[in-house]
Nucleic acid binder design. Structure first.
Lengths: 150, 150
DNA sequence: TCAAATAGGACCATTTGGGTCCCCTTTGAA
DNA sequence: TTCAAAGGGGACCCAAATGGTCCTATTTGA
C-alpha cells in the first residue's frame, strides 16, 4: 500500500499539537503524558516518538521536574521528509539502492539495476516540498474538542 | 523506510524482461518458468506476480500448451504507479485517508485530519510521471549476462 | 490422449514494526 | 537534604502483514 509507519503518523500529530503553545525555542514545554492525553495516543507511544524526534533534533527535551518538550523550529520549517527520515529512516523505495551493498542476489541479471534513483529523488522532492505547517493548517491551533475516554 | 513491497520490485523486473521479445499484443509469449530463469527470481514467485499483473490487465496470459505471457502495452505506456497499485493496492500514505471510514479512533482530536490528501496526490503524481520504460532504459533489452547458480 | 502451461486459491513461516515496560539520570520543589 | 516528576535509553514481546510455496482445476497444442 506504500504506506508510512504509524509512528510517523503519530509524530506528525504530536508535533502539530506541540506547536499549540510552546511554539518555539524558549517557549513553554509540554510533557509527554500531557501530549498523550491531548492527542489520544497511548502515553508510552508518545514518549517513544518524542525520544526519536529528540534524537533527530526536531524537538528538544527538557529534563527534570517541570520538564517537557518543545519544538526546535516552527512547523513551517520542518519538511515532511524530515519526520519520515527521523522515524522510518532514509527514503528509498527499494532495498537494492545506494548503500545496500550486495543486497540483491540477482545483480548480474537485474535489468533495472541502478535506475530507481530518479524515482527516489522524485519522492523525496515531493515530500520535501510539504511542511508540517501544510499538514497542520491554520486550524491546528484550535482547542481540542474532546478527549478520548480510554 | 517508506519502501514498496518486494513483489512490486519483482513485477517491474519481470515486465522489463517481458518486453525483451514479445513486446506487444500478438507478440511472442514467454513462460513463467522461462522468465524465472531469466530474472533469477524463484519460479513460484514469478508465477504469482504474473497472475496479479494479469488480473490488473498489465500482462496477458495465454493458456494451454505453448502458452505464456505477453505485455498488453509498451513499457512506455505503463506508469510505475499502475504496477504499484496492481500489487500493493491504492497509494495512500496513511490509513486514515479516504475510504478508511472510521479507522482512526482519535478523530475528534486529530489535528491533521483530512490534510494528507495533498501529500498523497504529490506522491501519486510523482509515480505517475515515471514509466517502466524509464526504469528499464535502453539497456533493458541487452542479453542477460549470467544466470544465478541457485 | 497426454503434456505443458496458465488460473486461482489456500496455506504456512518469517520478518518487521507496534507497543509496552524497565531502569537510570536529571532537576525543581518541599 | 530528600523526594517526586519528567526525560533518556534500551530491551522485550506480541501480532499483523508479507513473502513464499504448493495444490488443484482448466485450457490447449502436439
Amino acid at each position: 500500500m506504500l504506506r508510512l509507519s504509524k509512528l510517523t503518523d503519530y509524530a506528525v500529530v504530536v508535533m502539530a499539537r506541540l506547536a499549540r503553545d510552546g511554539a518555539l525555542p524558549e517557549g513553554q514545554v509540554q510533557t509527554a503524558p500531557g501530549l498523550a492525553q491531548a492527542t489520544g495516543i497511548a502515553e508510552p507511544t508518545v514518549a517513544k516518538v518524542l525520544k526519536i524526534l529528540g534524537q533527530a533534533g526536531l524537538v528538544e527535551g527538557v529534563r527534570g521536574a517541570r520538564g517537557g518538550y518543545r519544538l526546535t523550529r516552527p512547523l513551517s520549517a520542518v519538511p515532511l521528509s524530515a519526520v519520515i527520515v527521523a522515524i522510518d529512516g532514509p527514503i528509498a523505495l527499494t532495498a537494492c539502492v545506494d548503500g545496500g551493498q550486495g543486497g540483491c542476489e540477482a545483480q548480474g541479471i537485474c535489468a533495472v539495476r541502478g535506475r530507481w534513483d530518479p524515482v527516489n529523488d522524485a519522492i523525496r522532492r515531493a515530500l520535501s516540498g510539504i511542511t508540517l505547517a501544510d499538514l497542520a493548517g491554520p486550524s491546528c491551533c484550535a482547542v481540542p474538542t474532546m478527549l478520548v475516554a480510554e
